[in-house]
Design a protein around this nucleic acid. Structure first.
Length: 467
RNA sequence: GGCCCCUUCGUCUAUCGGUUAGGACGGCAGAUUUUCAUUCUGUAAAGAGGGGUUCGAUUCCCCUAGGGGCUGCCA
């Protein structure tokens, strides 16, 4: 299996390392890579330049490809001329290559001179029109292209780098790749690739092709792209890509607090399903049950809500041991000292309430700081002057409760509330607000137990002084 | 525009000629809960349209429409 990323024009330093880290995060550790070596090394495109050039030259020698010296301006003019003539799809093909600056149209001596003078050239595939190219796609069945519709693709660029088409075919052949599995956007190019295998005489050992359905934007318009992360407010990459320039920073599922297993799980279900009603699968189970026959043909829209639901299923399974270090990191990121309270209790109290582990810290912030943010709007809706003294009475009574537990605190407090004449529905929200600043959240006395007697009492007293 | 791929609830999908067209997310309603969330229960919601083939089409074929991809010295 080779995973490609040969984006030369927009090459980002560190991209290679990012891919390795992302795979590791997802639990898919590559056992070979540029650094580890392997039977088909080297792997970096820049280290294989001579290989690509050799194979391109072979094609030229065999008359399957040719040199071209057209400038971008020449190409632009050609396209314009064809458009003006009413040609729907202007392309560099058999019908126009005689009019362009290439080794097929120019005199041999002229070609010699240009080569001699080291004038940069591209090498183009000589596509013979009028042939049918049958592609057997494992997902789509037989797909037919007519070579008349195909252009003379650039194989080797003027800067000496191969285009994807050349590199892909040469590498796959040399590295004995058996299955090409890629996105549907590559389906039209596959016709060129088959032609290349044919030109090299490698058609017998050509890999099989599987073109996967695309992941579409949530609104269904177009394939999901990296910019959509910012646009729709959710990640599209496994790992975040921090940058000095915030505009270039990209969020990742990791920085959004997603579980790697959940990401694998919901990604697997985009364009595929097991045919049963089970939806939660570990990587191991997925490997066992995954059947390529069941891969869809149509694109699937990315649904962030469903992704969150998958993640929630995994968060509920999380043990404190596996969550602890991440919680501490999330806490530190928000400036909280999570050592001041029993983090395990906080985790157990809040995990059923969140979709992502990262939400535990902000949701339970009142466990980590005494600087409560009071929700004055909700509090004033419930507040009555009589509530103050009752809160004070409860606080006083709680001082002598030992051991201080959910049950013991609740028993004492409820006793006082019931004799106070104030409704539960009024006092309970105020009690919760005293402890957390808001009127909603987990069970008041469960919070109290985790908070401890001292903080519970002092926060209640604080609230009781309100008027 | 041309070429290629695709088309079942709003979304992801099951169905491989005969089903009350199933599940999940989301929605709505209810139960539980001192609140919110969780959880549980219930509920609304789909075969793009038109032709064929067939005893019978969501399922097979064709056309139309719609969506997506490609159409670069990007991948």
């Amino acid at each position: 299996l080779r995973i490609e990323d040969t984006d030369q024009t927009r090459y980002v330093p560190g991209a290679e390392e990012y891919i390795i880290r992302a795979l590791n995060w997802l639990g898919l550790t590559p056992d070979e890579g540029p650094e580890q070596g392997g039977p088909a090394a080297p792997y970096r495109q820049s280290e294989r330049m001579a290989i690509y050039k050799d194979f391109a030259m072979t094609l030229v020698k065999d008359g399957k490809a040719y040199y071209a010296w057209d400038t971008p301006e020449d190409l632009e003019q050609m396209r314009q001329r064809l458009t003006d003539k009413g040609v729907p799809t202007p392309k560099y093909d058999a019908s126009v290559r005689g009019e362009m600056k290439n080794s097929l149209s120019m005199a041999a001596s002229e070609v010699e001179d240009l080569l001699e003078a080291n004038v940069p050239y591209t090498i183009r595939l000589k596509v013979e029109p009028g042939q049918s190219i049958f592609i057997q796609d494992k997902i789509r069945g037989e797909v037919v292209f007519d070579s008349t519709e195909l252009d003379d693709k650039v194989l080797l660029k003027a800067d000496g780098y191969p285009t994807y088409h050349l590199a892909n075919v040469v590498d796959d052949h040399l590295m004995k790749i058996t299955d090409v599995i890629r996105g549907e956007e590559w389906l039209p190019s596959t016709a060129h690739h088959v032609l290349l295998y044919r030109a090299f005489g490698w058609e017998d050992t050509m890999p099989t092709f599987s073109h996967l359905p695309l992941i579409l934007k949530p609104d269904g318009h177009g394939k999901l792209s990296k910019r959509d992360g910012q646009k729709f407010g959710f990640p599209v990459f496994p790992l975040a890509w921090p940058s000095a320039n915030p505009e270039e920073s990209i969020e990742g599922f990791d920085s959004f607090g997603f579980e790697p297993e959940a990401v694998i799980n919901f990604l697997a279900f985009l364009g595929w399903n097991p045919g049963t009603e089970q939806e939660i699968f570990s990587l191991e189970e997925l490997i066992n049950v995954f059947d390529p026959e069941r891969i869809h043909k149509g694109g699937a829209r990315f649904d962030y809500d469903k992704a969150l639901w998958f993640n929630q299923q995994y968060v509920q399974q999380l043990s404190f041991a596996s969550a602890e270090s991440r919680l501490k990191k999330y806490g530190a990121d928000l400036g909280y000292d999570l050592s001041v309270t029993n983090l395990e209790s906080v985790f157990n109290l809040l995990k059923a309430r969140v979709h992502r582990l990262i939400e535990v810290v902000p949701q339970g912030y009142y466990f980590f700081t005494d600087a409560l943010v009071m929700d004055e709007v909700e509090i004033s809706k419930k507040w009555t002057p009589e509530a103050g003294p009752v809160l004070g009475k409860i606080a006083d009574a709680l001082k002598s409760v030992a051991p201080f537990t959910h049950e013991s605190a609740a028993a004492v407090a409820k006793e006082i509330i019931q004799t106070s004449g104030i409704k539960m529905g009024v006092l309970m929200p105020l009690l919760r607000a005293a402890l957390t600043g808001t009127t909603q959240g987990p069970d008041v006395f469960a919070i109290a137990e985790v908070l401890g007697k001292e903080k519970t009492v002092s926060r209640m007293l604080q609230m009781s002084k309100r008027n």
